[in-house]
């Protein structure tokens, strides 16, 4: 099944004001940067964005925050973004902070048809407020529900025309679970290859989870914390 769309505007067609969108990435690593720029161009508003982080002030999801296109963020860590902190503390932006492992598992569950699960993470904290607690093996756990989205936008290293995806290094992060949890999943890839070019033994995300795939025009791949050591 050919999932290729030639133009980015076709890839994101159907994203409307008020929708819930998942975006892969950890920090700026493995984010669908071309699609985020396209969302800026589209001007879509009142979005609920599910993404581990919120970008930095002038890159990644920070671009959508600057233009007030996001109504609500569902994330685990948002510490790198001053505009985010300002909007949150002033009440302009709704924020749901979730433990990172619970966020990952909630996306996985959403894509896997598991409506909810129990986890020890967050028990006894604000995160547990209003949630069912049950004891398993003598240890309290809280009930967390699955997450799904109208659109999931992921970034992969390589993808084929069938939508099979391969991620590179730690740019994988949330992308595979989010790919599973989108009603429509869009993949932007660095290399788009014909079906049969990728070894089926080494596919990370099978094409069944991907509805649209396109080759990103530019991958800036900004580094947040460039740390190096001197050569001896």
């Amino acid at each position: 099944m050919n999932k290729v769309v030639d133009h980015i505007s076709d890839a994101l067609k159907g994203i409307e004001d008020g929708m819930t969108i998942m975006l892969g990435g950890f920090g700026l690593c493995g984010i669908p940067e071309n699609s985020i720029k396209e969302l800026v161009k589209m001007g879509t508003k009142n979005l609920t964005c599910i993404s581990n982080n919120a970008g930095v002030d002038d890159y990644g999801l920070g671009l959508l925050l600057q233009r007030k296109q996001i109504k609500k963020m569902i994330s685990s860590y948002v510490g790198e973004n001053e505009e985010f902190e300002r909007q949150m503390l002033s009440g302009e932006l709704e924020v749901d902070l979730i433990p990172q492992g619970s966020l990952a598992e909630r996306c996985r569950a959403g894509g896997a048809g598991i409506p909810a699960f129990f986890t020890p993470a967050g028990y006894g904290t604000e995160v547990a407020e209003g949630k069912e607690v049950r004891v398993f093996n003598g240890k309290p756990h809280i009930l967390e529900s699955a997450l799904t989205a109208d659109f999931a936008i992921v970034k992969a290293w390589k993808g084929d025309t069938e939508g099979n995806l391969v991620f590179k290094a730690t740019a994988m992060n949330f992308n595979p679970m989010m790919a599973m949890a989108g009603k429509i999943t869009v993949a932007e890839v660095e290399e788009l290859v014909p079906a049969g070019s990728l070894d089926p033994n080494f596919i990370h995300t099978p094409g069944i989870f991907v509805q649209r795939i396109f080759k990103g025009a530019v991958f800036e791949k900004r580094i947040e914390q460039r740390t190096v050591r001197k050569r001896a």
Binding site: G27, T170, N173, R226, V228
Partner: peptide
């Protein structure tokens, strides 16, 4: 590192940083 790597090594030599390879502190 919880962002998805087991077997982390030292920081890269200058010029060998890879934007796709970071730790949970977002360091290369």
């Amino acid at each position: 590192s919880e962002n998805g790597v087991l077997g982390m090594g030292p920081f890269p030599f200058e010029g060998e940083e890879d934007a796709d390879l970071i730790n949970a502190g977002k360091q290369t």
